[in-house]
């Protein structure tokens, strides 16, 4: 297990594509891992305290990581435990393993995720499980659990996997969704615009678009794309 803690307050955001693979390396090697501190390329060890306890494929991020971006990007296995909040693009393109965030997550959580699990104990901001601009498919597999609230644009162009939000979600949920499940225990705004497939379940209130048909299954649409997505209360 690798333990990483910021040495100081960062004057600008840090981009650190840390994955659990690092936990298998020697501390000295880990310290040399390159990260971006604004426009300077620096070594991880210059910005962070690094220590190791045991050999399991796990990283614990202590202290404030709310301005550290791209943590867990492309990870395939192992675990990252974030003791506080995490910066943008956490778990992007993730294919396996687990990320646990004890506080909040910034924008673009689990973008184009294709496997694995992300658990956010606090809130997540906008663009959870979406596709980056220009790409055709969002989250395709895996699971994102948000125990608090989520922002706008959740599960855009999602084709598979599961997003569960225990609190409320913002507006425009599951737009152009093709498959997978979004479950919201609280309330949200518009859901399912141009949805082709998949299911959005909402416990609280939400706004249905005028292009969904009411059926026994729930609201089915979006008729504008001859969609068979289902939006329903549960």
């Amino acid at each position: 297990m690798l333990i990483i803690k910021p040495k100081k307050y960062f004057e600008v955001c840090v981009e650190a594509e840390i994955t659990p693979d690092l936990a298998l390396k020697k501390v000295e090697e880990v310290k040399k891992f390159k990260v971006f501190y604004g426009n300077k390329i620096v070594e991880l060890g210059e910005l962070f305290e690094i220590s190791k306890e045991g050999e399991d494929k796990k990283i614990v991020l202590g202290g404030d990581f709310s301005r550290v971006k791209w943590v867990g990007t492309r990870m395939v296995d192992g675990e990252i435990l974030v003791k506080g909040s995490i910066g943008t693009n956490c778990g992007a393109f993730m294919r396996g393993g687990r990320i646990i965030i004890e506080k909040d997550a910034d924008d673009w959580l689990g973008t184009e995720m294709a496997g694995g699990e992300i658990i956010v104990k606090g809130n997540a901001k906008n663009l959870v499980g979406c596709a980056y601009y220009g790409d055709a498919v969002g989250m395709s597999a895996g699971k994102i659990l948000i125990e608090g609230n989520a922002g706008n644009y959740v599960g855009d162009k999602m084709s598979g996997g599961e997003i569960i939000i225990k609190g409320n979600a913002g507006d425009f949920i599951g737009m152009e969704m093709r498959g997978g499940v979004i479950e919201i225990h609280g309330s949200c705004g518009f859901v399912g615009g141009d949805m082709r497939g998949g299911e959005i379940r909402i416990k609280g209130s939400f706004e249905v678009l005028p292009t969904f048909k009411k059926t026994e299954k729930g609201w089915v649409g979006d008729v504008n794309v001859k969609g068979e997505g289902v939006v329903k209360n549960f």
């Binding site: 425009f172 518009f190 615009g193 706004e207 678009l209 005028p210 292009t211 979006d222 008729v223 504008n224």
Partner: peptide
């Protein structure tokens, strides 16, 4: 958004 969707329909 909703109105535009309705017009398309």
């Amino acid at each position: 958004y909703a109105i535009l969707s309705a017009l398309r329909a």
